[in-house]
Design a binder for these strands. Structure first.
Length: 114
DNA sequence: CGTATGACGAGCC
DNA sequence: AGGCTCGCCATAC
């Protein structure tokens, strides 16, 4: 890993790459873990700029309401929901994730519930 | 270098 | 609880 931080973009990439399978984090959380509390919106921008074939698990990043943020057009939202469900993440009737159960705090590796 | 943009978030109604 | 407004912030132009 680089000795010096290139930019927020790279910091975000590293944080998201560390999110375990079957867990989720919020944009605001990523911003804080990347060292820029309050830059939640910028996290979304960084993920948007991510190359298509990237190995970064962008789908594990959701909003503070436990929902999938809209991107206007496109199916990426449906894809994201599908990928998460495929990892065992459950959605409620309103299509939202129980953050108390699946939120990754940066330490634990397993969800409290299932 | 100032303005616009966006996969957000907390607060208020 | 759900919807709206305003504030935040790194990039893009």
């Amino acid at each position: 890993m680089p000795a010096v931080e290139r930019g927020f973009f790279e910091a975000v990439r590293r944080v998201v790459e560390a999110v375990p399978r079957g867990r989720v984090v919020t944009y605001g959380q990523v911003a804080q873990m990347a060292g820029r509390p309050g830059a939640a919106r910028t996290v979304g921008w960084a993920l948007h700029a991510l190359p298509c074939g990237s190995k970064v698990p962008w789908h594990r990043v959701i909003n503070a309401s436990g929902g999938i943020s809209s991107r206007g057009e496109g199916l990426s939202e449906d894809i994201q929901r599908h990928l998460l469900r495929h990892e065992g993440v459950r959605f409620d009737a309103l299509g939202r994730v129980d953050l108390d159960a699946y939120r990754w705090d940066g330490r634990r590796k397993r969800p409290r519930k299932q």
